[in-house]
Simulated assay, not measured.
Amino acid sequence: MLYSNILSLLALGALTTAAPRQEVLGGPDEGQFPIPQPLPFNATLPGVNYNLIAKLRDAPNAIARIAMLDDKDFFFDFISPPLDIAGTEFQGQGGRFIVASGINMPGLVDNGMSMAIGFTKACGFNTPHTHPRATELALLVKGRMISEFVAETGARKIRNEHQPYSMAVFPQGSLHLEFNPDCGEAIFVAVFNSEDPGLNTPAESLFMLDDDLVGLALGLEFLPGADIDKYRHLVPASLAQGVESCLSKCGISKSEL
């Protein structure tokens, strides 16, 4: 039963997956349902001004930091963001996120805040994830949104339905999701109490571990590592598009995914 349930979940992931823009792991079948490639050892993020950020962090006080920056460093345009800087945009078939953080808006360095706007398409589903270094406040400004989170093992699930100008709170480290159950676009603004909130998608992260250990974690120790690898590409990427009832209501064919 456990084996069947897990394979069913992975198969559902195939319906809800969207391809992000990051480089993905190789393999002939993995391009359709990619897993973001981790940053290699000693690598750098494209477009990030490492020297400026280091100087800002070493500055003795805020006055010195402000003196290093131009006026434009305290300004961020979510409609025309700096897409040449890594971590600014995360995109999938279900929509996209634009993120303002310390790496693309230097004025945020040492201010302990960042912000993102999620533009979700019809049936857009921001798959379960955590922010390891921040609590999130998510304010819906257009459409309708379903939110859920589990703060930690042993805590009950929290679920709410949001109309425009209602807000959800996702405690730091909690596993949470957002879903647009309607046929029009939904937009929400997310604020974090860290300039580097981080992102962890447990499904993708689990399948980055050693195959044998993944099998043990899923209770599939009897499933060969090669078979686990067959389902690795079915893990959904962030901002996937899915949930069959919504797709049917909105006239979206699975073949369009």
Rank of each mutant, 00 (worst) to 15 (best):
N5S: 06
I6N: 13
S8L: 13
L9T: 04
A11G: 03
L12G: 04
G13N: 05
G13S: 06
L15G: 09
T17E: 00
A19W: 00
E23S: 11
V24L: 08
G31C: 08
P36M: 12
P40D: 08
T44Q: 14
G47I: 10
V48G: 02
A54M: 05
R57E: 15
D58G: 06
A59D: 10
N61D: 14
A62N: 12
I63A: 15
A64E: 15
A64T: 10
R65H: 10
A67D: 14
L69M: 13
D71F: 03
F75D: 03
D77R: 01
F78D: 04
I79P: 05
P82V: 09
L83S: 01
L83K: 01
L83R: 12
A86V: 00
G87L: 01
F90L: 10
F90Y: 12
F90S: 01
G95L: 03
R96K: 15
I98S: 00
V99C: 00
A100Y: 03
G102Q: 09
G102S: 10
V109D: 11
M113P: 01
S114L: 11
G118T: 01
T120R: 03
K121Y: 07
A122R: 08
G124K: 02
F125W: 13
T127P: 00
T130L: 14
H131G: 02
A134W: 10
E136T: 06
A138Y: 04
G143A: 07
M145K: 07
S147G: 01
E152I: 08
T153I: 00
G154H: 00
R156N: 03
K157E: 08
I158G: 01
R159F: 01
H162Y: 04
H162L: 15
M167H: 06
M167Q: 02
F170Q: 10
G173L: 10
S174E: 12
S174F: 10
L177A: 08
L177S: 09
F179Y: 13
N180K: 06
P181I: 06
D182N: 05
G184D: 02
E185V: 11
E185I: 08
I187M: 09
I187L: 15
V191K: 04
V191W: 06
F192I: 07
S194P: 09
L199Q: 04
N200L: 14
P202F: 02
A203M: 09
E204Q: 09
D211H: 00
V214C: 11
V214H: 10
L216P: 06
L220T: 07
F222G: 04
F222H: 03
I228L: 15
V235H: 05
P236Y: 09
A237P: 03
Q241F: 05
G242W: 07
G242I: 07
G242L: 12
V243T: 00
V243L: 05
E244C: 10
E244F: 15
C250E: 02
G251Y: 06
I252T: 00
S253L: 15
S253A: 15
K254R: 14
K254I: 13
L257K: 14
